[in-house]
Computed example of a mutant assay.
Amino acid sequence: MKSKIGCNPAVAERFQELFNYLLSKALVHKQKDLAKLIGATEANVSRLLSGDDRYTTKSMIARINHASGYPFSEDYLLRGEGTLLSDPESRVSERELRETCEEEPSALGSRTLLHLPVIPTTLKAGIGRGILYERDDTQDLEDVYAAYASVPVFLDRETSHRYQLFCVRDDSMMDGTRDSLCIGDILLCREVLREDWTHGLIGRYPNVVVVTEEGVLLRRLTKHDRKQETISLHSLNGGDEDRIIALQDVKAFFYVERLIERHLSTW
Rank of each mutant, 00 (worst) to 15 (best):
K2L: 12
K2A: 10
S3A: 14
C7S: 12
F15V: 05
Q16A: 09
Q16M: 13
Q16T: 12
E17I: 07
L18I: 05
N20W: 11
K25D: 05
K25P: 02
L27N: 13
L27K: 11
V28I: 11
H29M: 09
Q31D: 05
A40D: 09
T41A: 05
A43Y: 08
V45W: 04
V45G: 01
S46N: 11
G51H: 03
G51F: 01
D52M: 04
R54F: 02
T56R: 05
K58Y: 10
S59D: 13
S59T: 15
I61E: 05
R63A: 14
R63W: 00
S68C: 07
G69R: 05
F72D: 00
E74K: 09
D75N: 12
L78P: 02
E81V: 15
L85F: 03
R91T: 09
S93K: 04
E94M: 12
E94H: 10
L97F: 06
R98L: 13
T100G: 14
C101Y: 06
C101E: 07
E102R: 15
E104I: 10
P105K: 09
P105E: 09
A107L: 15
A107K: 15
R111N: 08
R111F: 10
L113G: 00
P120E: 06
T122A: 15
L123T: 12
A125F: 08
R129Y: 05
G130W: 04
I131T: 10
I131D: 03
E134S: 11
E134W: 04
E134F: 09
D136F: 00
D137W: 13
Y145P: 04
A147E: 10
A149W: 08
P152D: 09
D156F: 14
R157V: 08
R157C: 09
S160H: 09
H161W: 11
Y163R: 03
L165R: 05
F166A: 04
M174V: 15
M174L: 11
D179H: 13
S180I: 02
L181M: 10
I183A: 06
G184A: 01
D185V: 01
I186E: 08
C189P: 00
V192M: 11
R194S: 11
R194C: 04
R194N: 08
T198Y: 12
L201N: 01
L201F: 00
G203Q: 13
V210Y: 00
V211S: 00
T212L: 07
V216S: 01
R219K: 15
Q228D: 11
Q228T: 10
E229G: 02
S232Y: 06
S235H: 03
N237P: 03
G238P: 02
G239P: 06
E241S: 14
E241Q: 13
E241A: 15
D242R: 07
R243C: 04
I245P: 01
A246G: 14
L247N: 07
L247D: 02
Y255Q: 04
Y255H: 14
V256P: 01
E257A: 03
E257V: 14
L259N: 06
E261W: 12
E261V: 07
R262S: 13
L264S: 10
L264A: 08
T266I: 06
W267G: 10
